Every structure is written in structure tokens, then in C-alpha cells.
Computed example of a mutant assay.
Amino acid sequence: MKFAAIADVHGNRPALETVLADIAALGIDEIVNLGDHVSGPLEAARTADLLMQRGFPSIRGDQDRILLELRQAGVSARSDFRQLEPKHFDWMASMPSTLMYRERVFLCHGSPKDDAAFWLDHIADDGSVRPAGITAIEAGAEGIDAGLILCAHTHIPRVVRLRDGRMVVNPGSVGLPGYDGKVPVPYVVEVGTPHACYAILEQVRGGWSTMIRYVPYDTATMAALAQAKGMLTWASAIATGWVQREGK
């Protein structure tokens, strides 16, 4: 069993197209998608159209959930919300929050019980983002009967082997290699490269083999689009992999 895992596309269609081409060139036919498909100032509708066309096994991320909540409220000034059509919202609404893939792989966005959780990493009191401890990670995996667990949300690629032999893998972000946040304290995530990122998973004798793959693409158009919409953090992250904070 060999397949690719993508996550956190965030409306970056050029990055997605490049990753899908790279996966095809490697002869991999199966792809799973871990959510946060379209949110942000980029190309929400065009990205949703491509993902809908491809029909990958997919789950709903926290930002997908928030867009659906905005739909229920009926109005939003957000750029992504205004791009989306009813068919796009219906597509996201059809997705589960978690999924067991081929009876062997558990898919979630943040953690199995919280789509907005930092699971393999945590935000320290000083705002630094650090790898989480094994005890906390194992607590989040309690009750999950799968040898491989895939998560996303942080955009930080990570591979963790639990002490019982299960693997937890975050494939990183296809479309957004850096961002900032305010909860629980102000923090910044920076991957340090603008490359699109995904993972290749293969079941081998003795467990799972994992490859985190970084793919270069032309970032200029999406960085310029984010800049034009006043999203300096997004523009700098897409262009460089590093975050220039708003107003600095």
C-alpha cells in the first residue's frame, strides 16, 4: 500500500497543481486530503473546483468548518467566502471530520478529537512553537486502532513513532508555509522554505515508510495576490517560507 497525503492547500491552486503533477510523475495513484482546502485570500473557488474534480478521500479542517459556519450565518466579508458558490459549500459540508482510510489509516485534521489542536507541536508561553512531548502525543492517539495516523493543521511536517509502534505523520502544507496566530499567545509558524510540501506513505515490512517531499513552484503570482489583498504575512510566507508580520 502506497499513497500520498496532502493538507492545508488554503486556496493555493498553483502549489496544488505542482504537487499533483509531482505525485503523478512518481506513479502514485492514491491521494488523501486532510483539510483546510480553500480558506484565505488566494483562489478559493478555483482550488475547490480542482479538488472536487479529483474526488480524493477528504476530511474537513477547522477553517472549512468555520466557512460552513459563516454560510449558516449568511454573510461574510472574507475574500474566500465571497468567491465560493453553493456547490463548494455543499462539497465541504459532505466531508467528515475524521476518516478511516482503507481500514488501516486514520485521518484527522488537528487531532482525533479537536480539528484546531496543535498535536505534534505545541505553543509555549513565550510564543515559540516546539515539538510536543511523547506523553501528550500518545494521549491524543488513545483509542485510535490504526497503525498509521495522519494529522495536519500546524503546517509543520513531522513524523512521530509512538511507543506502541504506531506512527503519526503530519505531511505539512501544500499552499502556506508560514503564518501567525494569537491564541493562546501570539506566535509564528515558519517552515523556512516556500516549497509546496506533502508526504508519501508506504506500508513496508515492519511498519510504515514516510517521505516528506518539498516541491518548488512559481510562488510569485500567489504572493502578489496575497500582497494585493493586504495580507503581508501570507505574501511573505508564500514567497520565502518566512513570515514578515503585519505592520513590521
Results as ranks from 00 to 15, higher is better:
residue 2 K to W: 09
residue 4 A to Q: 00
residue 11 G to Q: 02
residue 23 I to M: 08
residue 29 D to N: 12
residue 34 L to T: 01
residue 40 G to D: 03
residue 43 E to H: 06
residue 45 A to P: 04
residue 53 Q to T: 13
residue 55 G to F: 00
residue 60 R to K: 15
residue 64 D to Q: 06
residue 66 I to K: 14
residue 66 I to T: 14
residue 67 L to A: 02
residue 72 Q to D: 14
residue 73 A to T: 10
residue 80 D to E: 15
residue 82 R to H: 12
residue 83 Q to Y: 08
residue 83 Q to V: 10
residue 88 H to T: 03
residue 90 D to M: 09
residue 93 A to Q: 09
residue 99 L to R: 12
residue 103 E to G: 12
residue 105 V to M: 06
residue 111 S to I: 09
residue 115 D to K: 00
residue 119 W to H: 09
residue 120 L to Q: 04
residue 123 I to C: 03
residue 124 A to H: 08
residue 125 D to N: 14
residue 126 D to F: 08
residue 126 D to W: 09
residue 130 R to W: 10
residue 133 G to L: 13
residue 136 A to K: 05
residue 139 A to H: 11
residue 141 A to G: 06
residue 142 E to G: 09
residue 143 G to N: 10
residue 146 A to D: 05
residue 146 A to Y: 04
residue 147 G to L: 08
residue 148 L to W: 00
residue 149 I to A: 03
residue 150 L to Q: 03
residue 154 T to L: 01
residue 159 V to Q: 12
residue 162 L to H: 05
residue 163 R to T: 15
residue 164 D to K: 06
residue 166 R to Q: 07
residue 167 M to Y: 02
residue 171 P to C: 08
residue 177 P to E: 09
residue 177 P to R: 04
residue 182 K to T: 13
residue 185 V to R: 09
residue 199 A to M: 09
residue 203 Q to T: 06
residue 205 R to K: 12
residue 206 G to A: 06
residue 206 G to I: 11
residue 209 S to T: 05
residue 210 T to V: 15
residue 212 I to A: 03
residue 215 V to Y: 08
residue 222 M to C: 12
residue 223 A to R: 00
residue 226 A to C: 09
residue 227 Q to I: 07
residue 228 A to Q: 15
residue 230 G to K: 01
residue 237 A to Y: 04
residue 239 A to N: 05
residue 240 T to W: 09
residue 242 W to V: 09
residue 242 W to T: 12
residue 244 Q to Y: 07
